[in-house]
Amino acid sequence: MAVNEENETFVHPLYEALERFPGADVGLTTADRVLTWGLTNALWVFPMATSCCGIEFMAAACSRFDLDRIGTIARGTPRQCDVMVIAGTITVKMAPRVKKLWDQMPEPKWAIAMGSCAISGDFYRDIYSVVPGVDTFMPVDVYVPGCPPNPDALFMGIRRLQEKIRLKREGKWTEPELRPDTPGLRSPAIGRLGDPGRDACTSQAQLDAVLGLDPGGGLRRPDQKS
């Protein structure tokens, strides 16, 4: 018996096979423990690294920190991976690609949102091209806040994911991971042009700034002061 993503219990096909043999059910508890041990200590990751968090991920995978020693091996293809680590800003153009890679990963699979940009978009949140958090289009199991989180924080996230998998396989209900609050979340400070709420001074200041630029260009000699 195990618990899936939606906290529903289900019977693993392996148990059905084992139950055909007489007396095998005695060993099921032990088998379950072994399977859980194997599952949590062989989390192969697919690094969905798009920006600076990817550098921290690389640092975590290198010899000083060494992700391999907890069984977390980075693979270059989603088809061999259990965990997707989304490390970096995901743009509107990238989001369908991330979703496609996520869909290509075989079950069971988990996702770690690493860094502020993957969690909420951070200060790129209000930009026209950035997705405000990857959990708007795919499920996320563990959030690792930081800008970027250092390798220790990533290790902490992976350990938390291991704990979560273990508890779920033991049939214990776990608290759903909460997205860390972003303080001061608000609508863009500068309203759109023509907005009734937009400050007229802002419009004029922006217009002056644009018109104050050197409009002519022209040929300037070094001795001419423009």
């Binding site: 509107v92 989001a95 209000d126 930009i127 026209y128 091209s129 997705v131 405000p132 708007t136 289009f137 609508s187 863009p188 500068i190 309203g191 759109r192």
Partner: peptide, 8 residues
């Protein structure tokens, strides 16, 4: 600047 792009 704050145009939202569907569906994200």
């Amino acid at each position: 600047i704050d145009t939202r792009h569907f569906p994200w």
